[in-house]
């Protein structure tokens, strides 16, 4: 019993995390209150971060928590608080028009996942050793990411700072224009 438990431990953790992630995603569309929906999405994000840890993608897990659970969630909550969306009442009429699109997209996604699962065992898959080793020496995932990011992908890394700079200046330019009209708010 104990041996079976230990052997299947990571599988059980995965199914727990997957259940939390799916439940959180369902909660996003099921909760009437936008704040509750956002918190449900937060739970989903954290569960996905846990799945990344199980896959030994520790850096991705850290990014998931820092950027998604931290930054993106802040943006969502700010939008909710800025535009004053109250608890939704009744059925949204415009949502019904999206049902055919949702069905088509769902079928496409299911087919893609099916193809991915069937073809998963074949073809080139990223070498897991490359993601957990530096110059042949096994190390943590974060170290390996850092090594390849700061040695092999030097230029893309520096370009990222330019992209962030553009995002920052763009936000300020657009934001100040918006603020001018709302002065005294």
């Amino acid at each position: 019993m104990l041996a079976w438990f230990l052997a299947n431990f990571s599988a059980m953790v995965f199914y727990c995390l997957a259940a939390v992630a799916v439940a959180g995603a369902v909660g996003v569309i099921a909760f009437r209150s936008p704040v509750h929906a956002a918190l449900s999405l937060l739970g989903s994000f954290l569960a996905v971060a846990g799945v990344f840890v199980l896959l030994h993608a520790e850096f991705l897990a850290a990014v998931q928590i820092l950027v998604y659970a931290g930054g993106v969630m802040v943006l969502f909550l700010f939008v909710i608080m800025l535009v004053n969306v109250r608890t939704l009442t009744g059925e949204g009429q415009y949502v019904r028009r999206l049902v055919p699109a949702a069905v088509v997209l769902g079928i496409v996604l299911a087919v893609l996942i099916g193809v991915g699962v069937v073809a998963g065992g074949q073809g080139a898959v990223a070498d897991p050793a490359a993601l957990t080793a530096v110059a042949g020496v096994p190390l943590g995932n974060t170290e390996a990411v850092g090594w390849s990011l700061y040695r092999d992908y030097l230029l893309p890394f520096e370009v990222v700072s330019l992209v962030l700079l553009v995002a920052m200046i763009g936000a300020i330019v657009l934001g100040r224009k918006d603020l001018g009209a709302k002065e005294g708010a």
Binding site: L66, V67, G70, G71, V72, V74, L75, F78, V79, M81, L82, V83, N84, L164, A167, M168, A171, I172, G175, R176, D178, L179, K182, A185
Partner: peptide
Amino acid sequence: RFSVRYYLIAVLFVVFD
């Protein structure tokens, strides 16, 4: 409702994040 000024702070926070 929160002042829209908070949103600029939030966007800058995400960039530095």
